[in-house]
């Protein structure tokens, strides 16, 4: 049993993300929520997924990224047991989802992209309906509606709901029965910034409660600080998988430094050999490899130059995504 502080050797890349748990002191044995091994899914001649391998520990929030048609929805359908892989093996919460019974489905919450509910029901009735289908207490709906900020519209018909309200009702529906695994396909579509913020607060609470969350979204900036893992799919293959730090390291993307100094010329001289660009009378911008960052800072400190501010911009998930998105064709050419 591996626990916090275990000095065992670094796990293979496949399970590197389990390291997150070392820090949190959570036992990792039997804690893998999702395990996908050599999964291929074909529709006729089209390979929707082509040899996908990954494992996600329980209690993690993972971002599933990729262009339209990359295979994200197919992967979600496979994990939900709504379709079976052509080959390979999938284990979700210790069960094969395609063969699992009602007990398995009760532990899963799913919010489909562009969720739609029966227009004639009110929000309250919708949740009661799905609670009954899930075999859950149908009287928990007020608590859930409150949680997603829809208590005021509980008795309004769904047909009068805005897109954002429908999304929130969808989230409430997915939360019925306190799921152990939550799959959210484009959950923030149609939500304004305030609602997005509230939505991620709910996600944060669930994460803290140990719920495993799989989140697919095109809005990368909002995922960056809120997910533990990211997986990038391209043409049915995984091009990147790991924590954001791991992906940054793997991509070896440069950091951007913006230096404010009274004499930019002096800074350029001190940083001899590093190309810098003057962007304002007292401002320089330069890019460098991550490992050079500290050397630059030390050089500047040692030079005694009057530096008023240094802004360090690490590669964002947007940059990482763009990098791995571009990398794929190159790999194929090889």
């Amino acid at each position: 049993m591996k626990t916090l502080g275990d000095e065992s050797p670094r796990p293979p890349l496949f399970f590197q993300s389990l390291e997150l748990f070392y820090g949190w002191g959570i036992t990792i044995m039997n804690q893998t929520a999702l395990a996908v091994e050599a999964v291929v899914k074909t529709y006729g001649n089209h390979h929707a997924l082509n040899g996908v391998n990954f494992a996600v520990p329980a209690g993690v929030c993972m971002a599933l990224l990729g262009h339209n048609g990359a295979g994200k929805t197919t992967l979600m359908k496979l994990l939900l047991g709504l379709t079976r892989p052509t080959s390979g093996q999938i284990t979700v919460l210790g069960t094969n989802p395609a063969l699992a019974g009602p007990e398995f489905r009760r532990q899963i919450g799913f919010l489909p992209e562009n969720v739609i509910f029966h227009a004639e029901l009110t929000g309250e009735e919708t949740l009661k309906h799905y609670a009954r289908l899930k075999g859950e207490n149908p009287n928990r709906q007020n608590e859930l509606l409150e949680r997603v900020g829809l208590a005021h519209a509980a008795r309004r018909r769904v047909k009068g709901y805005s897109k954002g309200m429908r999304q929130r009702l969808g989230l409430a529906q997915a939360l019925l029965g306190q799921p152990r695994l939550l799959m959210l396909d484009e959950p923030t579509t149609g939500l304004d910034p305030m609602l997005r913020h509230e939505f991620y607060q709910v996600i944060q609470e669930l994460r803290s409660a140990g719920v495993t969350i799989l989140l697919s979204s095109h809005v990368l900036t909002e995922l960056e600080a809120r997910t533990d893992l990211a997986m990038i799919l391209e043409h049915g293959r995984i091009t990147a998988f790991g924590t954001l730090d791991e992906l940054r390291r793997e991509a070896a993307l440069p950091v951007r430094l913006r230096i404010r100094a009274s004499d930019p010329e002096q800074v350029m001289t001190a940083l001899n050999g590093i190309t810098a660009r003057q962007t304002a009378p007292e401002e320089l911008e330069l890019t460098a490899a991550v490992e050079e960052k500290m050397t630059i800072l030390r050089t500047l400190m040692a030079s005694g130059i009057d530096v008023s501010d240094i802004e360090i911009q690490l590669p964002t998930l947007d940059h990482v995504y763009a990098h791995f998105g571009r990398e794929k064709p190159a790999k194929e050419e090889k």
């Binding site: 489905r105 799913f110 489909p112 969720v115 289908l133």
Partner: peptide
């Protein structure tokens, strides 16, 4: 067609 099917299909019902 309306899109209400996924929520039902994902429920724990056979």
């Amino acid at each position: 067609r309306q899109g209400t099917w996924p929520a039902l299909a994902c429920s724990p019902l056979s």
